[in-house]
Amino acid sequence: MDPAVRNLLLRILRKIPTGKLEETLTKWTHLSRTQQQSLNYSQSKWILHENIVYLCEENGLTMKHVSELDMIYCMENPTSATWRACQLTDAEDDASSVELISFKEQFKAHLSELIRNVSIKIKKHDDESIWIRIAWGDHFSKPNHLKPTYVVHYLQTPYVFICNLSSKNKLLLHQALVLATKHGSIKDANLSGRSFHAVRDLLMGHYNKTFPTSHSRPLKERNLSPTHPNIVKEHIEQAEKRQQLAREAFGEGTVPKLERATYTLETRFRGGSGIDTFIDSERPFKTVVTFESKSLLASLRHCVSSGMAESPVSPLLSSITQKGRNYFVITDKTNKGPDMTTQSFRSNV
């Protein structure tokens, strides 16, 4: 076996937790059933990996097969790097008629035309998404399989999700995508996160949304000993209202797991309390605000329902779900209308 292939195989194996190894190898199908049964998963990782490499050598597997293993693992566990969302724009008339085979051919043809020594692998996932693994090389070097770029696209939608893309190859990939999907251009959707599913669900709106409703929810009967029934009733009503607002803004139940949201504020100073320097001037008070949490939407929802955030929910925060973005540049509207407090969103592409 080529040392490069062996090296890549070992690296991929090290990445996969032992608990998931058996399942991943079964999906891979390049080891026979008897070969798989000969593996002892309770052995130490090091011996187990050496045994797998031995079996692969026996089967004469090449770089093509090994990179497929990487792809299978990534498709099942797309949480290892930051995923950035992009949006295709200016669809041509026949954009909706693009199907898998023509996309595959077109994409491969365009990208290999733009750059030599590139290794492309395309697979369809069970949920109709197309997964593309690209190992980049250049005129003088072979494709580097250690740092592949992954691209996920849902046909007939404008959404593309990319991870591990260097700025050097960005233009090439964008061009190949635009041509293969029959669109005019592609732009950054200002949304990124470590979980592919969260980014996708947020952008494509696949999560439990609660829609605004003016109907009051029926109150449950409670066996409390109230100090004053009206006060208790009012408290319950307020709490329920906050809960409702929180759900409307950030979703219900399990929400997409987003890690952060960033706002570049270039707005006039609103700190007040007699500080005139910034109030009089048109100069913005420049601040970058970052929200971080293990699950940002769940945290924000809790902030609203617990009262740390006051109602109404700031449009800047609800825009995360409404616009499916987590990167914003906020400026004041330039025209001096009567409403001085409104802000405008300017996307940063």
Partner: peptide, 15 residues
Amino acid sequence: TLPSEPPLDVTMAVD
């Protein structure tokens, strides 16, 4: 750090 569930970190980087 705000005591929400899970905790929320807010960082302001003022020019």
